[in-house]
């Protein structure tokens, strides 16, 4: 070899995709835990405690949640930073892209623009959410969360976050599949259709799931509003004490 290869472009491309994939996996998993409220206060409480490590260490460490939030925040920052490389670097590029997209009316090109916008929004919405979790890790629970959502008016943030994050995640996974997927030339069109269909379904599913649980939190929050601030006490625990 005449000279040492600069592997950074490869690493950064991989890292951008990798952080994206991790974040999507996180958010898709997160949705299930978050929507445990649909199964009742008890289930949600259990999940909360699990993340605080109670089942492992015998007592909850909310700091664990803070740590997780910090890692996710870091991933987002890294992902955003890497994605930023691909954004229009100046007004001329922005304008060319705009003209191009408007003329072509091509779905995948337009979707990229949707990614840019949702990504931009996520940077604020997700950060806001994560910062709250980061500084108040113990403020999660059937009542604590519901109060935050209803009495604290956080439902506005979460409703927009829900929509934006799933659109971004769905498009992102579709693009990841097309970007790296080892499809044969003959079958790539078929796979593209299948993946697109699958993601429509997945995004729709998560939006329903998220909406249902958000409404549940809001309902609980509304009912609990007079006692806002009081924490949930598990039934079996209250009996034991």
């Amino acid at each position: 070899m005449p000279q040492k290869l600069n592997r950074w472009p490869a690493r950064m491309d991989l890292l951008q995709s990798g952080t994206g994939l991790l974040l999507v996996m996180f958010i898709w998993g997160h949705m299930f835990f978050e929507s445990s409220i649909l199964l009742g206060h008890e289930a949600m409480y259990w999940v909360t405690r699990m993340f605080e490590g109670e089942h492992l260490f015998g007592r909850p460490y909310p700091l664990l949640v803070s740590a997780a939030a910090a890692i996710v925040l870091l991933l987002i920052a890294l992902h955003a930073l890497l994605a930023l490389r691909k954004f229009p670097a100046n007004y001329r590029q922005y304008q060319r892209m705009n003209t191009h997209m408007a003329a072509m009316r091509h779905m995948d090109t337009t979707l990229w623009y949707v990614q840019v916008i949702t990504g931009f929004l996520l940077f604020f919405l997700a950060s806001a959410h994560l910062l709250v979790v980061l500084v108040q890790p113990d403020n999660i629970g059937p009542y604590a969360s519901s109060d935050r959502i209803w009495s604290g008016r956080f439902w506005i943030l979460y409703a927009s976050l829900l929509l934006v994050v799933h659109v971004h995640a769905g498009i992102g996974i579709y693009r990841l599949a097309m970007k790296w997927g080892p499809f044969s030339a003959a079958s790539s069109g078929l796979w593209r259709g299948r993946i697109r269909l699958a993601l429509y379904c997945i995004v729709a599913f998560y939006l329903c799931l998220g909406t249902a649980s958000l409404i549940t939190y809001m309902r609980i929050g509304a009912e609990h509003a007079p006692y806002a601030g009081e924490r949930y006490v598990p039934t079996h625990a209250s009996g034991a004490h």
Binding site: P9, A10, M12, D13, K86, M104, H106, D108, T109, W112, R175, M178, K179
Partner: peptide
């Protein structure tokens, strides 16, 4: 190749 954003146009 790493410039490609997979817009598929």
């Amino acid at each position: 190749v790493f410039g490609c954003m997979t817009l598929l146009g």
